[in-house]
Simulated assay, not measured.
Amino acid sequence: MPVKQRLKNYADGVEAFLRGSLKGKGIPAGLLESMEYSLLAGGKRLRPVLCLCFARMLGAPAQAAMPFAASFEYIHTYSLVHDDLPAMDDDDLRRGRPSNHKVFGEAMAILAGDALLTEAFGLMARTSEFLPADRVSRAIATLARAAGAAGMVGGQALDMAYTAKAGVSLEELREMQALKTGALITAACVCGAELAGASDDLVARAKSYGQSVGAAFQIVDDVLDVVGDEKTLGKPVGSDEEQGKTTYPSLIGVDHSMDLARRHAAQAVDSLSPFEGEEAAFLRDLAQYIVDRVS
């Protein structure tokens, strides 16, 4: 089965969980509508899928890890809602639809993002009903670091500081993207391993895979902003250049950027050398698929 279809099959399980996850909580109707507008807007569900695959590959039942895996999508969605705001990236489209603030207004978009982030930690805590509490608390700490000031939020702060700034170096770009995009992708892999009670060596391999896949993913996203099309991406093409953002193509060109993405994908595959089975095969193919999105 093609990797794209396997990714969809994994993502369908996440989607089914997400659809009912905010119901019956007493959330005011307008806020709930705004939250679900973005949370249920589709997407690859890459981060929860990575969490579930590593958990299952290392011995934890996928359904037991599902609430924790879904929390990654809550956090990712909140970050997109806030990134699209006029004070941030000022994007009008997200996943082929008007951005949250274009539909519900800036104030409600901010509140929806705040709510999704907070609800994510409730989902993480729920996982202790199904898996040992020490594993869950370790994974919560991992995700909190990855999503916070020294992780995704810190990366967004660097991204804002570097926008329209001349002379941003390749190393500065690498660090910013490792935080803004890579930290959450890496945490998804690590948390899956931690929820399964994996050894430190196997957790380190999960981390290595996540770091390599995260780097490849963001480099390819940079390239797609140059050579992709709006219909496929679901957002405007060329917005990075328009906003004065430093990207891999702007520093080293499209061809060298793709060479670098392929090297990261190969490193991700190497990290999986001890693993066998359906999930391991999928993760290897996924690393290559991330690069192949350009073709």
Score class of each variant (00 low, 15 high):
Pro2Thr: 11
Pro2Leu: 07
Lys4Cys: 00
Leu7Val: 09
Lys8His: 08
Tyr10Met: 06
Ala11Gln: 05
Asp12Ser: 15
Asp12Asn: 15
Leu18Phe: 12
Arg19Ala: 14
Ser21Val: 14
Lys23Arg: 12
Ile27Lys: 02
Ala29Ser: 15
Gly30Ala: 15
Leu32Phe: 09
Glu33Phe: 10
Tyr37Asn: 08
Gly43Arg: 04
Pro48Arg: 05
Val49Ile: 11
Cys53Asp: 10
Cys53Asn: 14
Ala55Cys: 11
Met57Glu: 05
Leu58Met: 14
Gly59Trp: 14
Ala60Gly: 05
Ala60Asp: 03
Ala60Ser: 07
Met66Tyr: 11
Pro67Thr: 11
Phe68Thr: 06
Ala69Glu: 11
Ala70Cys: 15
Ala70Asp: 12
Glu73Met: 03
Tyr78Asp: 01
Ser79Asp: 00
Leu80Pro: 01
Leu80Met: 00
His82Tyr: 02
His82Gly: 01
Asp83Met: 06
Ala87Asp: 10
Asp92Ala: 14
Asp92Ile: 07
Arg94Gly: 03
Arg94Met: 05
Gly96Ser: 02
Ser99Ala: 15
Asn100Lys: 09
Val103Trp: 03
Phe104Asn: 03
Ala107Thr: 10
Met108Phe: 01
Ala109Thr: 11
Leu111Asn: 04
Ala112His: 02
Asp114Arg: 04
Leu116Arg: 04
Leu116Lys: 04
Thr118Lys: 07
Glu119His: 12
Ala120Ser: 14
Gly122Pro: 01
Leu123Thr: 03
Met124Arg: 10
Met124Gln: 13
Ala125Arg: 14
Arg126His: 11
Thr127Trp: 01
Ser128Ala: 15
Glu129Gly: 09
Leu131Ser: 04
Leu131Gln: 04
Ala133Arg: 14
Ala141Ser: 11
Thr142Cys: 15
Arg145His: 11
Arg145Tyr: 08
Ala149Trp: 00
Ala149Val: 03
Ala150Leu: 05
Gly151Arg: 00
Val153Lys: 02
Gly155Ser: 13
Gly155Ala: 12
Leu158Cys: 07
Ala161Pro: 08
Val168Thr: 07
Val168Met: 07
Leu170Ala: 14
Leu170Glu: 14
Leu173Gln: 09
Glu175Cys: 10
Gly182Glu: 01
Thr186His: 03
Ala187Pro: 00
Ala188Ser: 14
Leu195Trp: 01
Ala196Ser: 13
Ala196Val: 10
Gly197Arg: 05
Asp200Asn: 06
Val203Cys: 06
Val203Glu: 04
Ala204Gln: 11
Arg205Gly: 03
Ala206Val: 01
Lys207Ala: 15
Lys207Phe: 00
Gly210Ile: 00
Gly210Pro: 00
Gln211Lys: 15
Ser212Met: 04
Val213Cys: 07
Gly214Met: 08
Gln218Lys: 09
Ile219Ala: 01
Asp221Tyr: 06
Val223Ser: 06
Val223Gln: 05
Asp229Cys: 10
Thr232Met: 02
Leu233Phe: 10
Lys235Gln: 07
Lys235Glu: 05
Ser239Lys: 12
Glu241Gln: 11
Gln243Ile: 05
Lys245Ala: 08
Lys245Ser: 08
Thr246Pro: 02
Thr246Ser: 13
Asp259Phe: 02
Asp270Met: 13
Asp270Leu: 15
Pro274Met: 05
Phe275Ala: 09
Gly277Ala: 12
Glu278Thr: 11
Glu278Val: 10
Ala281Tyr: 00
Phe282Ala: 08
Leu283Trp: 02
Arg284Phe: 06
Leu286Asn: 06
Leu286Cys: 08
Ala287Arg: 04
Ile290Arg: 08
Arg293His: 04
Ser295Leu: 13
Ser295Pro: 12
